[in-house]
Design a protein around this nucleic acid. Structure first.
Length: 855
DNA sequence: GAGCACTGC
């Protein structure tokens, strides 16, 4: 018997059939192989081209004349005197000589040596004075946006120019440069995008890649490309800049390129390890297992089965002989110390010790995360001595806390008041608190890793590297000599890794693999095998399999038409697909918003004392959608409305939202829209209404999410009064406590899609959207008939759907039509779905609104 | 019964 819904859907489908058949999907893709799409990213080439040689000569002469005139000006004399004090100044001629004689040069230099501001400037001055000013194009990459801007600004002022004249910058969605610009600072990501359009880096004379010691994925990726490019560009000069003395790795990678070391210039920072800190503070460490019977170290070892190698190493140390010169209370404390748990009371005592016994100056405490910071803040505020808010200004510093944009962090406190900053890794390189004199280092940081076997991203506190420890210590010596208190034994420090594992070995690789394909760099595997430290082949295989699953790569590992579109979007491939689906299925605005939020960062702030209220605000945005993605969408829409009414500030404050993040999302939406327009998916002249027919239809929005996020699917299984969640890869997972779906026991729909699954203390689904069977059947993975023929399988047989034959047939038919529509649009982006696909889409919407499939 | 390192196109 045909149900009402079947009849309605069937009618809608039949209406659309006639038209659909006349326009079979063409087998020839209109997107040609290898064709590179234009993108709206500003070109990093100069905006005007100098046609004739005589014009060039004239310009070169002008540049030289101007530079020499500036050198003699009074305003620049003081600046010059300052520059001459920098250690980099002493290597100027050696640097220029080495750079002239070698194609590749590796420069290492500690903080304060001036390599970032001086070396690019030396090149610029040299080129101009040699009358090559018109021809030179110097690019210097930075890993972070802020440093690209601030370094460019600094050099402009050192040259007595305005930013954007000969020195400029370009970061995503923001640039300051002109036809005169000869030295450009950009983020590594901007250069990598540029390489898609200009693989030869035409016109670039010198390229400096800064901060390569950080071993970020973009920088490691860029180095592979450059090593391949150099033989084709013999005139290009490459300068690699690293903060650590160990430049050998990079030198070897580039055929034993010469290295140049510049000594640093910072104040001395004294260093104390746990044993010394215990002597000073007289703090007694209590064993975590004091309550257990037979508190022996052996016993502890049995209890702590999951100890890390470093903490374990310390278990075997003979405390009494190793620390003979130390007091018995210190030895007792060392005996009780456990590397696995951070002792916040010890941190508190160390802060108190500094405040009571040491001179003025801010204290910077490195902790691992939100929880540590929050708990320590409570402790300090309750402390008899430190709790005096007239004497102490205690500030949390965390990427998701509201204090992140407050001036207080950087400002000098009033006399008699001491600033104490409780920070994560963010204070290691991203945020600099200048007046820090004391650093307390807990020795750990939360670090991502990638478990390729379980296809699982992990975020676990782990011991930092010696290089990080050195960097943290250096934060105390920016304005005067400082002191660093390390809350771990020297033995642990000596056993730390020299460097952190490079990011390319710690993260999923799907976006990188897509990028490699878009640059036509051969097979992914052979290309990545050329990396400084090649990733695990299994991690590469996982990435390729995912790209095949979502249809970005074909069986031959070549880009499909969909894959080529995804290459143009600066997004994770899943999110990019969601955006394309949104534009095809009339949910453009929600797709833009959700894509921007997922690609950038969560706009919800995590305040310290008002967690519950913040959670409630997020939940109220979600309404009854059971979706974190809808919460993001509604929050953004609310902000846009509030902004129109001039109520932005109070709206953000009341709803625990970050205005900075929301603004960035808004800008990113514009960029995505431009890119969709470039690839023909959106015709801007038709106005937003042409692409948003279903934008208010949450079922359709969730279906689009499903289309993009697949195969990130979770099964919701009723377990009595609660629901348990399962994934194909790792089995049982939990909803992250910060999700609007946390604490919900019963869900209206049987599945969730998610954008991120991370193992911390448990395996958590961070943001989820509850979806129906229909959403999965119409927009999820391919439908595979079961062996018995009475059902449908998906996700390699992990998901199973059964229904009456008539319903199954209807679904298969509708799905087939939707796929045709999708493929046609992918291959022919200008195709107007409204002319021929309206009926199919309407049928899909009709089905999504009914939820009656049996499991 | 609990939890949210950090960059970037």
């Amino acid at each position: 018997m045909t149900t009402d819904i079947e009849r309605r859907v069937g009618n809608l489908l039949d209406d659309s059939q006639g038209k659909g058949r006349e326009h079979r999907v063409s087998s020839t893709a209109s997107v040609e192989d290898g064709k590179q799409f234009p993108t709206s990213v500003n070109n990093i080439k100069p905006t005007s081209k100098l046609e004739s040689d005589s014009a060039k000569e004239k310009l070169s002469a002008e540049l030289k004349q101007k530079q020499e005139a500036m050198k003699g000006s009074d305003g620049l004399k003081a600046m010059l005197a300052f520059r001459e004090q920098l250690p980099a100044f002493n290597v100027k001629s050696g640097f220029i000589k080495a750079m002239t004689e070698n194609q590749v040069l590796v420069v290492s230099g500690e903080t304060g040596c001036g390599k970032t501001t001086q070396l690019p400037q030396f090149i610029l001055e040299e080129e101009i004075s040699k009358l090559r000013g018109a021809d030179c194009r110097i690019i210097c990459t930075q890993p972070r946006r802020i440093s690209a801007i601030s370094v460019a600004a600094r050099i402009s002022s050192e040259r007595g120019e305005n930013l954007g004249e000969t020195v400029g910058y370009q970061i995503r969605l923001e640039a300051k440069q002109s036809a005169q610009t000869r030295l450009l600072f950009c983020t590594t990501g901007v250069l990598l995008r540029q390489l898609v359009q200009d693989p030869q880096l035409t016109g670039v004379s010198h390229l400096l890649v800064d901060e390569i010691h950080e071993r970020g994925m973009n920088e490691d990726f860029l180095l592979i490309i450059l090593r391949n490019l150099l033989p084709q560009r013999p005139d290009l000069r490459l300068i690699l800049m690293s903060a650590t003395i160990n430049a050998d790795l990079f030198s070897k990678y580039f055929g034993n390129a010469p290295t140049l070391h510049i000594p640093g210039k910072t104040f001395a920072v004294a260093e104390f390890f746990l044993e010394d800190v215990l002597e000073k503070t007289r703090y007694n460490i209590k064993s975590e297992f004091e309550n257990f019977e037979g508190n022996s170290r052996r016993r502890r070892r049995q209890q702590e089965s999951k100890k890390d190698p470093l903490s374990e190493l310390f278990e075997d140390v003979d405390i009494d002989s190793q620390y003979r010169g130390y007091s018995s209370s210190t030895r007792k404390s060392l005996e009780a110390w456990s590397g696995t748990q951070l002792d916040l009371s010890l941190v508190e005592s160390t802060i108190e010790y500094i405040c009571r016994h040491e001179g003025n100056g801010a204290i910077l405490v490195f902790l691992t995360g939100w929880d540590d910071i929050s708990k320590l803040l409570d402790k300090v505020k309750a402390n008899n001595y430190l709790g005096d808010s007239g004497k102490f200004l205690v500030l949390p510093l965390h990427g998701s806390m509201p204090t992140i944009n407050q001036r207080e962090i950087f400002d000098r406190p009033p006399p008699g008041k001491r600033k104490i900053v409780l920070a994560t890794n963010i204070a290691e390189s991203s945020i600099t608190v200048d007046d820090v004199v004391y650093v307390i280092d807990c020795g750990k940081a939360k670090e991502t890793s990638y478990d390729a076997l379980n296809k699982l991203a992990c975020l676990l506190p782990s011991w930092i590297s010696k290089a990080s420890a050195h960097q943290r210590r250096g934060r105390a010596g920016r304005v005067q000599p400082g002191v660093c208190y390390r809350l771990y034994p020297k033995i642990i420090h000596d056993a730390m890794l020299q460097y952190q594992l490079p990011e390319i070995l710690r993260t999923p690789l799907q976006e990188l693999c897509l990028h490699i394909k878009s640059l036509q760099l051969g097979t992914v595997g052979s290309f990545l095998a050329q990396a400084l430290q090649p990733p695990d082949p299994l991690a590469v295989q996982n990435a390729i399999e995912l790209l095949k699953t979502i249809g970005a790569l074909d069986d031959m590992e070549e880009l499909t038409p969909l894959g080529r579109h995804l290459c143009t979007l600066p997004l994770d491939p899943n999110i990019g697909k969601m955006l394309l689906m949104g534009s095809i299925f009339q949910c453009l605005n929600p797709a833009l918003t959700i894509a921007a939020a997922l690609a950038h960062r969560d706009p919800f702030i995590l305040p310290i004392n008002r967690k519950e209220e913040a959670n409630d605000a997020k939940k109220s945005f979600a309404g009854d959608s059971c979706s974190d993605h809808v919460a993001l969408l509604k929050a953004f829409e609310g902000w846009k409305d509030a902004k129109r009414n001039g109520a932005e500030r109070s709206f953000c404050w009341d709803n625990f939202l970050s205005p900075v993040t929301l603004q960035m999302m808004d800008d990113m939406r514009m960029q995505f829209l431009d890119l969709l327009s470039d690839i023909g998916f959106v015709n801007k002249s038709r106005g937003p209404s042409a692409y948003n027919q279903y934008s208010q239809d949450l079922e359709m929005v969730c279906a689009v999410l499903c289309a993009g996020l697949y195969p990130n699917v979770v099964q919701c299984k009723r377990r009595g009064k609660r629901t348990a969640f399962y994934t194909k890869e790792v089995g049982k997972v939990d909803i992250h406590p910060g999700s609007v779906n946390a604490g919900v026991h019963i869900f209206p729909l049987p599945y969730m899609v998610y954008s991120e699954k991370v193992k911390t203390t448990s395996i958590y689904i961070r943001d989820s959207t509850n979806i129906s069977d229909y959403a999965l059947l119409l927009f999820g993975g391919n439908l595979v008939p079961t062996n018995t023929g009475d059902g449908i399988e998906m996700l390699g047989g992990y998901l199973h759907f059964s229904a009456s034959k008539s319903v199954l047939d209807l679904i298969k038919k509708l799905r087939g039509e939707l796929d045709k529509l999708f493929n046609r649009k992918i291959e022919e982006p200008g195709f107007d779905i409204n002319t021929e696909g309206k009926g199919v889409v309407a049928a899909a919407v009709e089905l999504l609104h009914s939820q009656v499939v049996h499991h």
